[in-house]
Amino acid sequence: MTEAILVTGASSGIGRAIALRLSRRTPVIVSGRNASRLQETVAACSGKTFLLQLDLTDLAALEPVVTSLLTEQGLRITGFVHAAGIVKVQPSRMDKIDCLAEVFATNFFSAVELCRILCSKKANEKRLASTVCISSIYANAAASGHAAYCASKAALDSYMRALACELAPARFNSILAGGVRTPMSKHALTDPAIAARLAAEYPLGVGEPEDIAAATDWLLSEEARWITGTALTVDGGRLCRA
């Protein structure tokens, strides 16, 4: 059996940076919706890499798809990184349940379902040892127009803490990521007015996906073996500014 780390949201941005970094030291399963962009990630990875095309909003399909890959490739997943996430910016008066459900399915419920599958004896022989979910500083700080996103990330942090207590010695942590340069944010960051505002808000400036990847790699590793149930802030000092 080959031990591997599963990374969701690996087709671009933070997820891709994490997959690339982890692939230097371990086999990686890169997961995402867009097959062609996933192929680009696979091509950029260093070691043995497996591609898993997944629509995380199709929750019922996750178990059969993941189980098939593990069986066919002789894999067991010992590390899990949930980097997939979507943002819907809209006034809270537009937050109807079906709209919230879409955000929660990708950002939260899919992580819950994947944790359940990977912790099971049947699918993965209970081999999951360490999980890191990419959360956001907006889990703890308000942002107008982001109510669903904020709530979904806060749910993720809380769920990691609960699993850390219930499923030890498996470890569950999250990262409260600040603003980084990704395809999702690059349009805004090219606007001089927005770039100037962010420069003033971030003592260390806006981050790069690799900054989140480095923290994720460390949290997954044995060096962090006594850390569980923690939400680690990686935000260039954004939250410490009054």
């Binding site: 943002v87 819907k88 910016v89 809209q90 006034p91 107008s144 127009g145």
Partner: peptide, 9 residues
């Protein structure tokens, strides 16, 4: 907020 939402859309 409305302007931000429209631009995001």
């Amino acid at each position: 907020l409305s302007v931000f939402s429209i631009l995001a859309h």
